[in-house]
Design a protein around this nucleic acid. Sequence first.
DNA 1: GTTTTCATGCCTAATTCTAGGGATGCAGCC
DNA 2: GGCTGCATCCCTAGAATTAGGCATGAAAAC
Lengths: 213, 213
Amino acid sequence: MATLRVLIVEDMANVRERLSNVIESQSDFELVAVTENVEQGLQALLAHKPDLALVDLGLPDGSGVEVIRAIGQQKLKTQALVISGFQDEKNVFKALEAGARGYVYKLEEDQKIIEAINYILEGGAPISPIIARLVLNKFQTPEPDENQTEALTSKQQNILLYISQGFTSKEIAEKLGISYYTVTTHIKNIYEKLQVNSRVEAIYEARKIGLID
Amino acid sequence: MATLRVLIVEDMANVRERLSNVIESQSDFELVAVTENVEQGLQALLAHKPDLALVDLGLPDGSGVEVIRAIGQQKLKTQALVISGFQDEKNVFKALEAGARGYVYKLEEDQKIIEAINYILEGGAPISPIIARLVLNKFQTPEPDENQTEALTSKQQNILLYISQGFTSKEIAEKLGISYYTVTTHIKNIYEKLQVNSRVEAIYEARKIGLID
DNA sequence: GTTTTCATGCCTAATTCTAGGGATGCAGCC
DNA sequence: GGCTGCATCCCTAGAATTAGGCATGAAAAC
């Protein structure tokens, strides 16, 4: 197997030093560039097209997310592993969306970092538990099920269903044999309960909380 | 610190045995019940209200997801750690949505399992890299541009996505930095391709043929 | 038995959408 | 070069939606 060519993007000198040592301690890894900000990182990325990039997020001239994003835009095969502190949710998700293959907490032991790199090479996605917690929270959309599901009356749910299928207020009125005005009133009430202002928003919201579909 | 009371739900005898040994080898863990299917698992869950549940997904009489879901429904404080094989995407997400605090691949070493439990106690969410890969894919899907949809151009898809999220034409124009009129034209073209006459119908249709969501 | 909630019905003004039309520029293809 | 598809921009008229009201009867809840 060919050596793995690695790029490091990290502003803090001590961490940079540490990562460098970790990489160099492995005979099958080759350190092709060590950079300390976004600009240098992008240049090195294009110049060396490394196999792996260890990227910090909080950099003096921007976010490491820019480097990760550049990988996708340039259609490089570089795999990005974020090595960063405990950022706010937003940054974590930005990095993952940008295409990061893993996210390791900066303070993990050296051994964990090498492990993480190997997992990536095997097609896995190492994510430190402290970071994964944030990701899981995304999935575990708290269930205000009976909170709002039962907030809508059956009539309202019924009308919401018709709305979601593309029927106009007039058509719904005919289908249900009630007045057009009544339908609009129901819709207004649905909006208030869901805290939205349009049909599409209502559908979007209702789907999120499992009211329809 | 009080001992951690643990429940195991696992159908395969050898794995069950192994997990039991792992738990019993730790002096601060107490094994309160070992079960081998959903029914027993649910009963033990309610009877013992354990602090931690190690749950397998593929069980003879159903999915471990049911056990995890019961935790939330019963408002228990039990933390669920899935210990399972490499399931299909659907099951992984179902488990996470149901409230699993972690997902460890069945074949990991004993040491990793203990580590995972400790991560959970610290508030982290251990996810084996092979599983995390699936989760990451969820995040990294907003660019199937020329991939699947030959019918809609990428611009049209982009606008359709905004529509589906409840934005008005004016808002979309601002977001994309283009004219309101351009947006309406795009929408008209989308309608023609999808053979519909309104935003909601477009969403309904697009979802049916897998264009969005 | 009173209050609240729900479904029903109606009105109007402002906003947004939809469906026609037309026009320009740019890129890729034959 | 000419053609075609795509994105861009503009206009207008009519349809639909939205947001503000107001009001009544019946059923459910307290």
